[in-house]
Design a protein around this nucleic acid. Structure first.
Lengths: 155, 155
DNA sequence: TTACATGCAAAGTGTTTGCATAACT
DNA sequence: AGTTATGCAAACACTTTGCATGTAA
């Protein structure tokens, strides 16, 4: 898809840099979680991440997964998505600006990269500040619909 | 603000119409909850609605509040907002197109009415359908920032 | 009258927390 | 060495469910 085909090593490097750039200690768990998010764009839940990384030798508690994800979200390089279908929260490494489509039937989440997304976003933020007096920091757009698979099932 | 200063009776009428237009039985609980949402734009949680409507004579269980809200959301005339600060879900009667700003400090939610919102939204949906093959139905935009009150506190 | 909504309480789920242990700088 | 993160399990909060009762059409 993209020119993002970095070697495993490079991804690990990049992840380590991101972690240290935000003043966090570089622990195996944080590294593993971040690498997972950078290499998987399936919008996993904390539970999914926990299951997948538990396959390796290093053990990681579910609480640590939650804590780590919250830390990443607070620092801004990972975002949360609530799809409203299940009660759980999904996560996404926020590399380039994009938004999400969520299937109202099966909950599957896909990325959409929108041309001029930056411009539209900053306009909306400007308007928001004007109308409400809030100082805006970020935005989050979700579109709801029916994914191709679920369209087939409905026929 | 708007020409929406309807009498209590008219709101009740409108609420009843919405309920019946969606094939639902018109129960006192549904009416009360919908009227509450139509007349309060404080983006309440289920708990808040439950507390407020419990003040009147008619009693309503918390489970009914949740069930009713879910029904309304499924039918599309009420929307859910997860602000990510607390773990709870907020609700909003979706009269005219708008989006929300959420204070990352205190969680307060405000409405923003954006000019040309419809156009931007339909463009985004078009792009989404093209890129992902989803059939889109609705969208949900959230902006995060700091509300005026919390700005003062930070000084 | 018949299907559907309600209320209660219990169960369920996802997430957070307290504390002792372990690991990073 | 000192601070900070981890892991476990218990605690939490929000939401859903089962079932008997009540109510709208």
């Amino acid at each position: 898809m993209e020119v993002e085909k970095l070697s495993e090593e490079k991804i690990a490097d990049k992840a380590a840099k991101i972690i240290r750039a935000h003043g966090l200690k570089r622990t195996p768990q944080r590294l593993k979680i971040l690498i997972y998010l950078m290499t998987h764009h399936n919008h996993p839940t904390a539970e999914m991440i926990f299951n997948d990384i538990s396959l390796s030798d290093e053990k990681t508690g579910i609480a640590t997964v939650y804590n780590t994800l919250n830390t990443f979200v607070d620092l801004g390089f990972v975002i949360e998505i609530n799809n409203g279908n299940d009660g759980s929260t999904h996560y996404d490494f926020f590399a380039k600006p994009h938004f999400h489509v969520i299937c109202t039937n099966c909950g599957k989440i896909a990325d959409v990269e929108y041309p001029n997304f930056d411009k539209i976003e900053s306009k909306m933020r400007l308007e928001t500040e004007k109308q409400t007096g809030y100082i805006t920091r970020s935005s989050h757009i979700k579109i709801y619909g029916l994914c191709p698979d679920c369209q087939k099932l409905e026929k």
